[in-house]
Design a protein around this nucleic acid. Structure first.
Lengths: 200, 200
DNA sequence: CTATGCCTAACGAACGTTAGTTAGTATATC
DNA sequence: GATATACTAACTAACGTTCGTTAGGCATAG
C-alpha cells in the first residue's frame, strides 16, 4: 500500500497555520482544521508540536519574526526629518496594507495576548523600529513625548486600514480611502500641519 | 422539593453574557459558560434564544445600543470649532477609557463581524455621531475629506487605549500615557497644530 | 537498524442542541 | 372563592458532534 510521501516540515505547518489563526483566532481554529490545510491527520501534528498552545505560540513567533527586520529597513531612509517622516509613513502604510494577516494577528494579540506573549512581541518585533520612530519624532519635535508620538503615527495608519470593513457603511466612505497612497498622504499632512493640512 | 425561584429575564442574561463575549470572543464562550454566570443550566438558555448565534447578536445589539445616544450627547457642545473639538476629544477619550468592554467588542466585530453585522453597527451606532464629527471637521477645515478626518480623530484616541497592554513593554511607556487627560491633550494638540503642537 | 513522519483508531471531555418534565403564576371560567 | 387553562422559566437527561490528545503500527530515508 503506497501512501503519498509528502513530508511536511515543522515550518511548513506553521506557515499554513498562520492564516488560519489570523482569520479565526486561537479558539476558532482546531487541530483538525490545521491538519486539513496541511494535508495530514490531526494526530500527526503531535509529532511536530507537543500541544496546540505550543503550535500557536510558535506560529505567532514565526509570523512576527520576519516583520521585525522589514520594519527596520523602512526607517533607514535619509533626508530632512519631514521627508523621512513622509517616506516612513508611505512605506509603513504600503507594508501594512499588503499584510492584513499581520494586522489581524496583532489585533488579536492585543485582545487576547497574555503578559508573556505581549512582552515577547514588544521586545522581539517592535522594540527596534519603535526606537527608530522615537528618534525621528525627537528630530522633528525636540523635547516631545516620543512614545506618544510614535503611537499616534502608527495608530493613524493602522486604524484607517483596520476600519476598512465598517467604513464602507459609514458616511463618506469611498474605495479611495483604502488606497495606501491616499492614507499615507492624509496621515503625513495631518502629522506635519494638523487638521488644517487636510484642506484641499 | 423546592427549587430556587430566580427568574432571569432575557435582558439580564444578555447583560451577563456581554462581558464574557468581550473577554473571550464568540468561539471562546460556551453556552455553559454563560449559563454558569447567569446561574441556570445551559438548556434553559434555549427558552430565551433559539441558538447561540442569536444570543450573541442580541448581546451585541444591546451592548452597542446604549452607546449610540451617549456619543450624540458628546457632540452637542457649543463654542468655537476648536473648543468643540477639544471638548469632544476629551469627553470621547474619557467615555472610551471607562468602557474597555465596549472597545473589546468593537475590535472583535472589526475582526470577525460579517457584512450584515457591520452594516447594522454602522447604521445603528455610529452613523449619527459620525455625521456630527464630520460636520465638526467641515467647520474646522472647510473642504476637507471629512470621512478621513473623523476616522483619524477616532483612531488616535482608540489606539492609545487599545495598545495600553503592549505599550507597557515599549520604550518610554509610562503609566501616565494611559490617563484620559494626557491622551486627550496630546490628541487635541496634534489635531490642531500637527506634531509641532506636541512640543513641551 | 534506527529514527522519522504519517497513519488508523480511539479516548474522555466539552460542545451546541433537543426532548420531556416540573414548579410557579397569571388569567379566565364556573 | 375555587377550579381549570395556559404560559413561563427552570430542570434533568441525553443526543450527535467536535474538541485536544494518546497509543500503536507501518512505511520510508539515512
Amino acid at each position: 500500500m503506497m501512501r503519498p510521501v509528502i513530508q511536511k516540515t515543522t515550518e511548513e505547518i506553521l506557515d499554513l497555520a498562520i492564516p488560519l489563526f489570523a482569520q479565526s483566532g486561537y479558539t476558532g481554529v482546531s487541530m483538525r482544521n490545521i491538519a486539513d490545510v496541511v494535508g495530514i491527520k490531526a494526530a500527526s501534528l503531535y509529532h511536530h508540536f507537543p500541544d496546540k498552545q505550543t503550535l500557536y505560540i510558535q506560529a505567532m513567533a514565526r509570523a512576527f519574526e520576519d516583520k521585525a527586520q522589514g520594519f527596520s529597513t523602512v526607517l533607514t531612509v535619509t533626508g530632512t526629518p519631514e521627508k523621512r517622516l513622509a517616506g516612513f509613513v508611505q512605506m509603513f502604510t504600503t507594508l501594512m496594507s499588503k499584510d492584513p494577516e499581520f494586522r489581524a494577528l496583532l489585533q488579536r494579540e492585543l485582545l487576547d495576548g497574555d503578559e508573556v506573549r505581549l512582552k515577547q512581541l514588544a521586545r522581539e518585533v517592535f522594540h527596534e523600529p519603535f526606537i527608530a520612530m522615537e528618534s525621528l519624532a525627537e528630530e522633528l519635535v525636540p523635547g516631545c513625548d516620543t512614545h506618544m508620538v510614535a503611537i499616534s503615527i502608527a495608530s493613524l495608519i493602522l486604524y484607517h486600514l483596520e476600519t476598512a470593513p465598517i467604513r464602507r457603511y459609514l458616511p463618506g466612505g469611498k474605495t479611495r480611502h483604502n488606497k495606501p497612497d491616499v492614507i499615507s498622504r492624509h496621515v503625513t499632512s495631518l502629522l506635519l500641519h494638523g487638521l488644517k493640512g487636510c484642506r484641499k
